[in-house]
Structure formats: C-alpha cells, structure tokens
Design a protein around this nucleic acid. Sequence first.
DNA 1: ACTAAAGTTCGATAATATTCGAACTATGGG
DNA 2: CCCATAGTTCGAATATTATCGAACTTTAGT
Lengths: 100, 100
Amino acid sequence: MRPFKHPPVSEFVLERLLYALSDPVRLDIVRRLAELGEASCGELDGGRPKSTMSHHFRILRDVGLVHTQTIGTTHMNSLRKADVDSRFPGLLDAIVSQQS
Amino acid sequence: MRPFKHPPVSEFVLERLLYALSDPVRLDIVRRLAELGEASCGELDGGRPKSTMSHHFRILRDVGLVHTQTIGTTHMNSLRKADVDSRFPGLLDAIVSQQS
DNA sequence: ACTAAAGTTCGATAATATTCGAACTATGGG
DNA sequence: CCCATAGTTCGAATATTATCGAACTTTAGT
C-alpha cells in the first residue's frame, strides 16, 4: 500500500481538529491511542465494520491527529501529540483528559 | 418572548461542545464573547442574516456554552464560563486561547 | 395604536457526514 | 502458488447541517 498523506503542522486547522474530535468513535480512538501509545486499526474497532473504522482513521489522519505507518499487513496508528502540542499547546490534553 | 432553555451543567456533553466549537462562525462568537463579556446577537453578526445567527446561537445555547437573557428587545448573550469550567476544567481556555 | 427594532421560527435547498456491504490490494505464511 | 489477514476504496442509503428568505413575535418609542 502506498504511504499515507500526513499534513504538516503548518496546515493544522483548529476547527477541523475540534470537528474530528466531536465524533464519539473518533474521540474514543484518540483516547485509546493516548493510553496505549499505538494501536492497529483492528484493536480499536468496537465490533464496528472495518470500512467504518477506516473512514474515521482517515479523518483523524487528515486533520493531523494521527500518524499511520504500515508494518506488514497491519497499520500502526499513533497520536501526533508533539506535533499537535506544538501547534495548539495544551489543547489535546485539555480534551483527552476530560471525563465524559 | 418565552425564556430560553439552558441545560444544567450535568447535561453538558463533551462531544457536543466540541462540535459546537468546530464551526468557524460559532467559534468566533465564543471568542468575541470571551473578550467582551457579553454581546447582543446583532453585535456579532458579520453581516450575516439574522436567521443564520439565530441558528448558531441556539446551538451554542443548547450545548451549554452560551447564556441568553432578554433585555427589552435585545438578547444579551454571555459565555457560561464558570459552568463550562466546572464540568470541563481548562477546556474552554485551551480552545479559545489558541491562535487560528 | 402605529411603527421600528431585534430576534425567532418555518421551509426549502444544497452541501456534508455516517454507516456499512462488496469488491479490491498488499503482505506474510505454509 | 494459494490463502488468510488487515485494511482501503467504492457506492449507495440515510441523516445532519448550514444558509437564507419570508413571515411572525415581542418590546419600546412616539
């Protein structure tokens, strides 16, 4: 598979990050990644279809929240925490740490 | 006009707050309210139709971000900062203070 | 009472999103 | 080479949303 497109920090847009995090599925993905450090797509589906998860991961990648690298047949995802923090200091922690 | 419905803090939902703030018009409203303290609907339209603004203010009210009280014929809006802070500490500052 | 001011509500339109099945792609193992 | 695994992409159905004009409501002023 061809490598994924990850936007540079300079293209991060606050509203788009907030939008990406406003979906319960995606917010959960981000929270789990914050805990685990990294995880494959399959580890984070809650029984949801792969195509649905693929959709959400793509949105998270597109806004700059998640980095995905291919290792064998699995896609390893991690938070781009340092990048997000550098562009929007304190934002990610303030959101992820809230108890829902 | 009958008074507006403002949800109690216990009904605040993180994802819905994030969604409300993911719209550029609404984020701008919230930022201006954070600066000004309070403002009427008319003061914050950027030339946009009243019905459009009314729509956005309703969403901000519904998620608990904005309080609206009727004074004469104008609706005075203010941030429910203390309420939001009590439910989601640090969230509002972390978002509003970011430079877009 | 008449009128203007300030918003709200309604209705329609156009744009976006979410979800998921089905088909497809690439990698690794036997 | 065959096959299972892990995801992606495509397409379609459904649902939400944003925007705005038009009509309506309430309050204040004269």
